[in-house]
C-alpha cells in the first residue's frame, strides 16, 4: 500500500473539487473493494476523498413514479427497505445474493457501480493485465479463466485483450430495471442511462465505465416499472454465499392473459458489464409462456458467445439459467 493523504469534504462541490485539484485522488465510501485493491498495490491513489459525510443516503419517490436511491445508501439498507422490497423485489433479491452480510452493511450503492473485476490476473502484480497495466497483455486469455467473460470480450490485439467480467449482482438488477445514474462533476450534473454506464473492454480495457474525471455518482434513479409481479434473480456460484456469480440472471416480465407484454433479461458474470440484448427481449413480447419460447430467447442472448477453455461451460449454463429464471418469473415454477 502506498502513502496517501486524506480529505473529508462536507459537501458535493468540495468533493468534486478535491478530485479536480488532486490528480490521482479517489473517492472512498464503504471501501470494501478499494482497500483490498490498495493492499495489493493494484490501486495506488495518492489521496483518498472520504465522501461518507455527504448527505447522499436518502431514498425518495421521484416525479414519474420512480424511486431515487442515494449513492451512499448501503446495500443492506437498500435491500431491506420496505419500498424497495415491495416495488423492486428484483433489486432486493439481487443485492442479497451478493457478498456477505458484513460487506453489504458497509458497501454503498454508488460504490458498487465502481466495483472492479475479480480477475485473478488483475489482482496479481506478478502477471500481465491490460486492465491494471495497459499494454502489458492478458494473463487470463490462455490461463485460468474459469470466472471470465464469454460475451463482448476483447481478444484480438494482445495489448488490448481483456476477458474480465463485472462482478456485481446489484448492477445486473439495475441494468434489467433500466436505472439511470445521476452524477455531479466539474461541468455540473448529468444523467447516464444504466446501459451506457459500464462499457465493454474494446480498445481501452482499463476503462470500466464512462464516468468522466472528477464526476461523483450522487444517486441511482429507478423508473416506475418495477416488475414486482413477475421477476426472478438466479445466481449460480461455487458455494452458497460469499462467492461471485459464475452466471447470474435478472428477469422482469409483464404478463397479461398468459402473454408477455414486456420483458427484461440481464446477465451477470458473462461480460465486462451486465449483459442486455433488447432485440432478444423483444422476441418474447406477445408470446405465450412456454419453455420453447424461453429457450429460443436464451439462444438469442448467448449468440456469439465464446469460451476460453475453463469458462466454456458458462455458455450452456447461462442458457439453462435464463430458461429457469424466465419460468420462475412467469410463475411456471417456484422461486429457488
Amino acid at each position: 500500500m502506498n502513502s496517501f493523504s486524506y480529505a473529508r469534504p462536507s459537501d458535493i462541490s468540495m468533493a468534486v473539487g478535491e478530485l479536480v485539484t488532486h490528480e490521482g485522488a479517489k473517492f472512498i465510501a464503504g471501501g470494501t473493494n478499494l482497500l483490498d485493491l490498495m493492499k495489493e498495490n493494484v490501486e495506488q491513489p495518492n489521496r483518498l476523498v472520504d465522501i461518507n459525510r455527504l448527505e447522499l443516503s436518502a431514498i425518495e419517490d421521484i416525479e414519474d413514479g420512480g424511486l431515487r436511491l442515494g449513492a451512499l445508501l448501503t446495500n443492506a439498507d437498500t435491500a431491506y427497505h420496505p419500498v424497495v422490497e415491495s416495488r423492486y423485489p428484483l433489486l432486493s433479491r439481487a443485492i442479497l445474493a451478493g457478498a456477505s452480510a458484513q460487506l453489504r452493511n458497509m458497501a454503498t450503492n454508488g460504490g458498487n457501480l465502481f466495483q472492479r473485476t475479480r480477475c485473478y490476473y488483475f489482482y496479481d502484480l506478478a502477471t500481465p493485465c491490460n486492465k491494471r497495466e495497459p499494454g502489458s497483455g492478458c494473463g487470463a486469455l490462455n490461463g485460468y479463466n474459469r470466472i471470465h467473460a464469454i460475451l463482448g470480450t476483447s481478444d484480438q490485439q494482445p495489448e488490448t485483450t481483456c476477458i474480465a467480467t463485472h462482478p456485481s449482482d446489484l448492477c445486473v438488477a439495475l441494468s434489467a430495471l433500466d436505472a439511470v445514474v445521476r452524477v455531479t462533476g466539474p461541468k455540473g450534473e448529468r444523467t447516464i442511462p444504466f446501459a451506457d454506464f459500464h462499457r465493454l473492454p474494446g480498445d481501452e480495457p482499463w476503462r470500466d465505465n464512462t464516468i468522466q474525471s472528477g464526476e461523483l455518482v450522487t444517486a441511482i434513479d429507478l423508473p416506475a416499472k418495477g416488475f414486482s409481479d413477475y421477476y426472478a434473480y438466479i445466481k449460480i456460484r461455487d458455494r452458497q454465499s460469499y462467492a461471485f456469480a459464475l452466471v447470474s440472471v435478472a428477469v422482469g416480465l409483464e404478463i397479461e392473459d398468459n402473454r408477455i407484454t414486456d420483458a427484461r433479461i440481464a446477465l451477470g458474470g458473462v461480460a465486462h458489464k451486465p449483459w442486455r440484448k433488447p432485440e432478444a427481449e423483444a422476441m418474447l413480447v406477445g408470446q405465450m409462456l412456454s419453455e420453447a419460447n424461453f429457450l429460443s430467447v436464451a439462444e438469442a442472448l448467448l449468440a456469439g458467445a465464446k469460451g476460453y477453455g475453463h469458462n466454456t461451460f458458462k455458455i450452456e449454463l447461462a442458457k439453462r439459467a435464463i430458461v429457469r429464471a424466465l419460468k420462475q418469473a412467469a410463475k411456471l415454477e417456484p422461486a429457488s
Binding site: Y120, Y121, D124, A126, T127, G139, N142, G143, Y144
Partner: peptide, 10 residues
C-alpha cells in the same frame, strides 16, 4: 497457472 508457475486464486 502453468504459464507463470504460480497459484492464482491466492
Amino acid at each position: 497457472d502453468h504459464q507463470f508457475g504460480r497459484f492464482m486464486n491466492h
